[in-house]
Amino acid sequence: MTNQEMLFEYLLRLGDNSLILGQRLAEWCGHAPILEEDLALTNIGLDLIGQSRMLLSYAGEVEGKGRDEDRLAFHRDTQAWRNLLLLEQPNGDFAKTMARQFFFDVFQYLQYEALSSSKDERVAGIAAKSLKEITYHRRHSSDWVIRLGDGTEESHEKMQTALNELWGFVPEMFDMDAVDEAMVADGIGVDVASLRPAWDAQVNAVLAEATLKRPDVSWSVRGSRDGKHSEHLGYILAEMQFLQHAYPDAKW
């Protein structure tokens, strides 16, 4: 791979993370437990979709084959997607949505904090702008993990179950492959493996306050960097891409 191709790949990973999680959160629209939370989840979803627009637009320019953000979002099939497996997992109940969000918010905060001093000015700018949003996302999801964990017996159990179910998707966030290494070497990307201790410290602090146990599961899955996804991504894309497939290049 040329440097250009690696940067394209790297931007896809960042952009796809935001877009798929944003799409998942949009599924809560009209279904959240209360109106206030309905708005909060869709706000956060829109923040994420906004991030993905900037990243995928840039990715398209770097690739130089005439693909814009819409082309990349609506005309790629599952194997071409690079989002973390965690983010395509179904919403489940509210606790599960919050567990997924909490794991990613803490990770994304650390990742974007480092990216905001990237040598690639465009990446640094997108990261710095997004960091304010992510700071709020992290506050929102941390608050809910604490509320549910340190809430009623039922909410505690649901929150603990959610953490346990998603824990196996955590290690993939900190994986490094040749593309990551090259981006770090160029001063563009982040050494995500080095973020793990900070992630653990933040997550442990919230779990302690929430009276929740750090999950102890032995399984873990990965594969998104090679386009290997769970069956859920196909369903997300089927819904998200339907309109552009049925009515190609439709405009509002």
């Binding site: 708005l39 709020y136 506050r139 608050d143």
Partner: peptide, 10 residues
């Protein structure tokens, strides 16, 4: 505290 964040969102 939740009222404040909800107010921000709504």
């Amino acid at each position: 505290e939740m009222a404040l964040t909800n107010a921000r969102d709504v």
